[in-house]
Simulated scan of single mutants.
Amino acid sequence: MLQPEQFAPPFCAPNQSSRPVCLADFKGLKNVILYFYPRDDTPGCTVEANQFSQLADEFAQHDTVVLGVSRDDSDSHQAFISKFDLRVDLLADTDGELCDKYGVWQEKEKNGVKKMGIVRSTFVIDKTGKLVHVEYGVDPEGHAQAMLEKVRALAS
């Protein structure tokens, strides 16, 4: 698992418009909130995406871009964004490479059944590319606000 003070693993992945988005695009310019979620248009994932979207302007005021990641494809992401009028980019990690780099593809248990899946996780990456906050096993309710507080602390 990744730890604060490490440099974030580099990545490039297509967004909802199939346009590649890379961590290097933001170096020296923006902080990045990279949040991983299990699936588009499911209850917890919708709560999290909507709350990040509601705070999009405040994140932008703190030079921060919010990127959501799941293993859904770009078309699924575009439908999810359209359905809820989301204001964050969603990255398609269809091969799971990004999930592996960030250690979020883990064994999960639900109703006594074990299977591999994305553990809801968030990484706050500063403008130098360093991890300043790492959280595995996130509760989606109120999480976006908590991450906004982390970003505000970077500015002070």
Rank of each mutant, 00 (worst) to 15 (best):
N15W: 11
Q106N: 03
M147Q: 12
P4S: 14
H133F: 10
V32E: 07
P4A: 14
K127I: 01
Y37A: 00
V119I: 06
F84N: 00
V132N: 07
D40Q: 04
N15H: 10
L86K: 01
P43K: 03
F11T: 06
Q61N: 13
G137H: 10
L2T: 06
K114L: 13
G117M: 09
L23C: 10
S76M: 04
P4F: 09
V21Y: 05
S70G: 08
V66E: 13
K114E: 08
G117T: 02
K101A: 04
W105Q: 05
M1Q: 12
F80S: 05
A153W: 03
P43D: 07
A155C: 09
A56R: 04
F59G: 01
V66F: 05
D57H: 04
R19C: 10
A24T: 13
A92N: 05
V47C: 08
E149P: 07
V65H: 10
L131V: 04
V138M: 15
P14L: 12
Y35C: 08
T64V: 11
D73Q: 04
E141F: 12
V104S: 07
C22M: 13
N15C: 11
K150F: 08
V134R: 08
C45D: 01
L98I: 06
K150V: 08
G112N: 09
D126I: 03
A49T: 06
D93L: 06
E135V: 00
P14A: 10
K30N: 14
P10E: 15
V65C: 10
Q61L: 14
K127H: 01
A79K: 11
Q6A: 14
A56M: 13
R120Y: 00
P20Q: 13
G117I: 07
L90E: 05
Q106F: 03
L34C: 07
Y35K: 03
T128I: 03
A79V: 06
Q61P: 04
G117F: 03
K110S: 10
E141S: 14
L131P: 11
R120K: 00
